[in-house]
């Protein structure tokens, strides 16, 4: 009951502050940018000129799967950045402004408060990200070749798990710090460290959350879901839930003033 109340209020807020407009647009742009520019690169080069006379520009062959992985590549960089920016104020902002004083003197469980906000943010982000990837899939089908719908849905599903983790990490720091800037910094540092760890130990960490997009590429190539993808998906979702739980526990101990 309370959970739905907060969730609905968050949704209303995202309508009023146009989050429901700009977040999908950003994700659509991120998703289609790379495949489209790659496809039209020869035309762009020709129109823009600047190529020396007689230069032959050999374009590598790009498959539909490669094009789709380009979209995921953009998501992994700028998508994550957008998510952290969009999520960092979730709890921290309300604590900083002081609204939280009025909410938490009502008999609201801290778990309800945090998890409903978490779910609301996830709804906007995952819906937007999915719209972006589906748009990208539409263009890829037109420009690069067929990719089956089931495969794309599976890819979107598994890739969403990565975003769940990113949102959860950001919300975790949002419970810890009052300043959105600090939340941004710590979240980005954490995500970069995870990336670095994965880079160094990638051969041993096939279930590590960062390995998700690699496994998704494999899935698209082989058209079967590799076991490592299930494994990485599982670690990602379990660690997200654990982090969320710890966030609630810390928040409960914390003084809100």
């Amino acid at each position: 009951m309370q959970w739905r109340t907060i969730f609905r209020k968050e949704m209303l807020e995202y309508c009023r502050n146009f989050s429901w407009v700009w977040v999908p647009i950003v994700f659509i742009i991120l998703a289609i940018m790379d495949p489209l520019t790659t496809y039209y690169m020869p035309i762009i080069l020709e129109k823009a000129g600047g190529m020396p006379e007689g230069a032959v520009f050999e374009m590598p062959d790009i498959t539909a799967v490669d094009a789709f992985m380009m979209s995921l590549g953009e998501y992994s960089m700028f998508g994550v950045l957008v998510i952290v920016l969009f999520t960092m104020g979730t709890i921290a902002g309300e604590r900083k402004s002081g609204v939280v004083e009025l909410i938490l003197v009502k008999p609201v469980h801290y778990g309800t408060y945090i998890s409903s906000k978490w779910a609301a943010k996830l709804t906007v982000i995952l819906v937007s990200a999915s719209i972006g990837l589906l748009t990208s899939w539409y263009y890829i089908n037109l420009l690069f070749g067929e990719l089956s719908f089931t495969l794309i849905i599976q890819a979107i599903f598994f890739y969403s798990l990565w975003f769940v983790l990113v949102v959860t990490i950001t919300i975790f720091f949002s419970c810890l710090f009052k300043s959105p800037g600090a939340v941004f910094g710590t979240s980005i540092v954490t995500l970069l460290s995870m990336f670095a760890i994965y880079r160094v130990f990638s051969h041993k960490l096939s279930w590590f959350p960062n390995s998700l997009s690699g496994h998704i590429g494999e899935m698209l190539q082989t058209e079967t879901i590799p076991n490592t993808l299930w494994g990485a998906g599982l670690t990602t979702i379990v660690s997200s839930l654990i982090i969320l739980l710890i966030a609630v526990l810390i928040f409960r101990k914390k003084e809100l003033a």
């Binding site: 209020k9 807020e13 009023r16 502050n17 402004s97 002081g98 609204v99 004083e101 009025l102 003197v105």
Partner: peptide
């Protein structure tokens, strides 16, 4: 029921 010294609301 509690009223803080400087109540802040969701302005929107």
């Amino acid at each position: 029921g509690y009223l803080p010294q400087h109540p802040v609301f969701h302005g929107w």
